[in-house]
């Protein structure tokens, strides 16, 4: 089995499995966030559950972080290997004639998402760790909604989030169907998967964009 994951196809499969996990996580994340559009109380309740439940905090969160780190490192390792496999670059290459921009630039959309994650961790995750484990503040189940609203006051942050989500959409537009192909999904099913992939890659980022814009414009 370890031999399998050392092969080129094994690495594709590993990349696809981590992608599946991250795509599932995005659905959960959006489902929680979207409640902030309708009810501050529900959002606070769900955030409090996610932030304090031991299963989420100490079992799912480490798996998530491993998944993110693995996907990024594996992505860059494969990119470097692939560059080496090409050797000399073409003087003239018409990539647009046979493939989409998204499929050829996964590493760049990935880099933007990585930069976004750094900002996102500085914005939400590090303060959260500080609040709970370093400053050891008392639990306040009502604080999450206000913290969210305050973060989306500055225009620069809203703009950065929107740009990152557009790049996330482009990354998913190729990544969704691609991960199924890596796992051996037949091309007959690929047509359906591509339709699903397109819908997913629009709906998920758009959901996050709407949330960021809503809180920016609704806060007085």
């Amino acid at each position: 089995m370890s031999g399998f994951f050392k092969s080129s196809i094994g690495r594709k499969v590993a990349m696809a499995l981590s992608a599946f996990f991250l795509m599932f996580f995005l659905i959960i994340h959006l489902a929680v966030n979207i409640t902030s559009l309708f009810s501050a109380d529900v959002f606070n309740e769900m955030s409090h559950f996610m932030g304090t439940n031991p299963l989420v905090q100490f079992a799912l969160q480490p798996v998530l972080i491993f998944g993110v780190v693995f996907h990024f490192i594996m992505g860059f390792v494969l990119e470097l290997r692939n560059k080496k496999a090409k050797g000399v670059a073409y003087a003239k290459n018409n990539g647009a004639a046979n493939s989409t921009w998204m499929s050829r630039n996964m590493v760049y959309s990935g880099l933007v998402i990585l930069a976004f994650l750094v900002l996102h961790f500085i914005d939400f995750w590090f303060p959260e760790l500080n609040y709970k484990y370093i400053a050891v503040n008392p639990e306040d189940p009502t604080r999450y909604f206000h913290e969210l609203q305050e973060k989306f006051i500055p225009v620069w942050r809203v703009a950065a989030y929107v740009i990152a989500f557009i790049l996330l959409g482009l990354h998913l537009a190729h990544g969704f169907a691609s991960s199924f192909q890596s796992l051996g999904a037949s091309t007959i099913r690929q047509k359906t998967l591509q339709t699903f992939g397109k819908a997913y890659s629009i709906i998920i980022p758009l959901g996050f964009i709407v949330i960021a814009l809503y809180h920016h414009f609704s806060h007085h």
Partner: peptide
Amino acid sequence: FGNCTNTGACEIECPKGISLENIA
């Protein structure tokens, strides 16, 4: 040889129209 990232360019340029289904 490098690692396939499913761009699908090979299938388009293949003179014999070999399908990506074969990679899957």
